[in-house]
Nucleic acid binder design. Structure first.
Lengths: 196, 196
DNA sequence: CTATGATTTGAACAGGTGTTCAGTTAACAC
DNA sequence: GTGTTAACTGAACACCTGTTCAAATCATAG
């Protein structure tokens, strides 16, 4: 009855399509990449892609959704300890996690406008709930451990500052990921007026 | 001899092409916008664009180059006074200037990868020389007015944090541009460990 | 009015787009 | 071997792409 278990290509080709799309979308942008280019990278004809993906938009959306949901899962247990400890932990986590996934981060940030409205809404909600974790940390320290005038503004400032690392960081560069993270921990602490 | 001075359309159509391209590129992305869409926005056929622009790439490049050079000119006299004053001034300038040109900022940041290599190099050099102005301020305060471990890293952190405002700011929102700027001045001061 | 030349049209060029699908290929079960 | 079915090809669909250019249009100068 069942045909093809070992040697079946479907569990190989599927992920290969995803990673080819990720790389090409991140490098050239969603609109600039054609299904035929993705297929060529995988070593297959364009028609074969449609055994795995209903359409181009779904390819982009699933990459983003997967990324955001993995991020939420990975950050699930953040926020323990004092506000100061929680902030340090968040900064270290954010930088380490994002530096290991620069393409996904870049894509999820740059191609939001390529999403159809309802897909955009979904991704935006996931992003919001990640940012809420940071804001909760700031609120916990507000008036006590931290000096924060506006937790919403400070959240946006911190997220932008931290995520910005993925734009300029180079593995061959002067500083290791850990060294960068420690430097950003110090900056983040001062930014929120954390007690020494 | 000369024909058409008054009523000549060329000095009208030219700028209209630029602003239509800016809006469409910013909203949908360079690759996703066609010359025919730009022409339609201007109310003209696609062929007419080529009286004003040699090709699509030049349209993007000139928008970016114009933006970066205007930014450099506008920021020419920044950096006077004490390091603390200079930083405050830079933060206020950066936020005010960028909030008045969100489309250009967005475009110049998102579509770097759509530039051909030599165009990219030029824009990147202009951006660098703007960032250098901030780094000079930080170096002037290093070891004295400021606590800064690494001026390069701090520059990147501050630029990312400040430019990030253009991504979430809404004119109808809770805070005025000035209120946002003052809040960011306070955060920037703490971030660099400026003395109260 | 006519002549001039800037400005724009509209069609054409060679090629690319996402997506579909009948038909071929290939790996397994029996 | 044969039968089954997942996986893939290759061609076709209708349409869009940036760019060019002869011809038409139009506003002015004289």
């Amino acid at each position: 009855m069942m045909a093809r278990k070992t040697g079946s290509h479907s569990d190989i080709t599927g992920p290969r399509i995803q990673s080819a799309a990720l790389e090409l979308f991140a490098r050239h942008g969603y609109a600039a990449v054609s299904m035929r280019q993705i297929a060529a990278e995988v070593g297959v004809q364009a028609g074969a892609l449609y055994n795995y993906v209903p359409h181009k938009q779904a390819l982009l959306f699933e990459l983003m959704r997967g990324h955001m949901e993995a991020l939420l899962t990975a950050s699930e247990n953040l926020g323990g300890g004092t506000p100061g400890q929680a902030l340090d932990e968040f900064v270290r986590f954010h930088i380490a996690y994002h530096l290991e996934r620069v393409d996904l981060v870049f894509l999820s940030y740059m191609e939001l406008r390529a999403l159809e409205p309802e897909n955009f809404t979904q991704i935006e909600a996931l992003r919001r709930s990640y940012e809420d974790k940071l804001e909760a940390i700031l609120r916990a320290g507000q008036g006590g451990a931290f000096v924060v005038e506006d937790t919403k503004l400070t959240t946006m400032a911190l997220i932008a500052m931290l995520t910005g690392v993925t734009n300029w960081f180079r593995a061959e560069g002067r500083l290791s990921p850990d060294a960068v993270a420690e430097n950003y921990v110090a900056m983040a602490r001062r930014l929120v007026g954390a007690r020494a």
